[in-house]
Structure formats: structure tokens, C-alpha cells
Nucleic acid binder design. Structure first.
Lengths: 94, 94
DNA sequence: TGATTTTGGTTTATTTTATAAACTAATTTA
DNA sequence: TAAATTAGTTTATAAAATAAACCAAAATCA
């Protein structure tokens, strides 16, 4: 009856991150933290999971003198997000 | 930026149950179990949570000689479901 | 008729997730 | 130079999901 909801995406914080990354080229750690209202620790952990799943890439560099973590959605992540949304529709309407 | 997703509804099984109950007067335990593909133990536990939150009512009776558990969504549950769906839209489109 | 299976669940234990708190390291600023 | 800030990571704890074990009555089977 109901299709499985990708457990990696069915998490408020990870879904918020992916939602943001769907609409922009890339996003910095601090930006994601502010938009999602997550703590740095939690965000760090959840980004790792998304990265390990191949849904995003994480690039570490420097912005001037401070470390900078930049995230980008991958093609695989994009597909997963779209499928998640489709599956979700099964649950939320009708 | 993102509104909180009601954690009681942001669970595959509980959401599935609520989704079913949105579209019918009432549903029996066995029916929900079959439709959601849940194990009895898990379903039992999640129904309790929905009931304690006041999102559903659970009625225990007998169907012939066997016990029968019947669930119904409450007005509060209906409102919560609708709000969950609205909040979710923030996450899934744009 | 007694043993075994089935129905319809609940309870308990385990695993997995989410989250907060503590920590690291470099950099500013007072 | 001591304290505070930036930008995170790691570790510990709390909460949630789930599986496995259990229970009681009824039905089936041998």
C-alpha cells in the first residue's frame, strides 16, 4: 500500500538541508545552520550522513583565514529527493 | 526559515496510519497492519502514541470471540495532520 | 482429547537516530 | 595576554523505531 520513505531523507534536518540545496548551486555550513536552525554538532553529523550516502558533496577549504565547509547536492541526491517527494504524496493526499 | 514538523506525525508508520484514518470513518488493527505493512508490535506501540497525543481514539471490543481494536481519527488529529501537510510543503517544493 | 496452530494483540529488549554538550584549533578583540 | 568568536568535530545521552518474545483464547488436527 505505502511505499517506503527513504529514511535518509525522512528526517527534519536532513530534509531541510536537501530542500535548500535543491534550490542553490552550493551552500556554506553557516548558511545551512542559520536556515535550518540546527546546532553545529547536529548539522555536522547529518551532513556526514548525506555525504556518505552520496546525496551531497562536502568541500573543505578556507574563507580567508577561517575554515569553510561548502555543500552541494549530487545527481543522486537530486533523484532521491524527487523520489522522496513523490512517495510522500502517497501519504499526504487522499 | 523552516517550521517544525510535528514529530508525532513525522514517522513513516504513524503518518501512514493517519493517512488511512483521514479517509475512513474507522479502521481495525488488522486492516491498518496489512495496509501499512507494519509488525503488530510496532503498530501497537505507534497507535498508543497517537492515542496518547489525542490524535486518534482506540476502542477495544470483540469481533465474535476475538479481541478487536478499532481506531478513529479525532478532530485534533485531523487538524494536526493538515498542519503537518502544510508545513511539509515548505520543505518539498522550492 | 490433548497437542499445535492461529488470531489478535501487548510487553520488553535491542538497535538506530537525533540531539546536546563538550571539545579542538585558529583568530580576533579588549 | 586573556577572553571571546568563528567554524567546526567528537562523544555522550536521550528518544524513537523496531524486532523478538510473550500472552490468552479459540480453532484445528491427529
Amino acid at each position: 500500500m505505502f511505499k517506503e520513505l527513504d529514511p535518509l531523507l525522512h528526517s527534519q534536518l536532513r530534509l531541510g538541508v536537501m530542500s535548500l540545496l535543491m534550490s542553490m548551486e552550493s551552500a556554506e555550513f553557516g548558511f545551512l545552520k542559520e536556515k535550518t536552525n540546527a546546532t553545529a554538532g547536529n548539522l555536522s553529523a547529518q551532513l556526514d550522513k548525506l555525504s556518505e550516502a552520496g546525496y551531497i558533496t562536502i568541500e573543505k577549504s578556507f574563507k580567508g583565514k577561517y575554515p569553510l565547509t561548502t555543500c552541494m547536492i549530487t545527481k543522486k541526491g537530486l533523484k532521491a529527493f524527487e523520489e522522496y517527494v513523490n512517495t510522500l504524496k502517497q501519504y499526504i493526499h487522499k
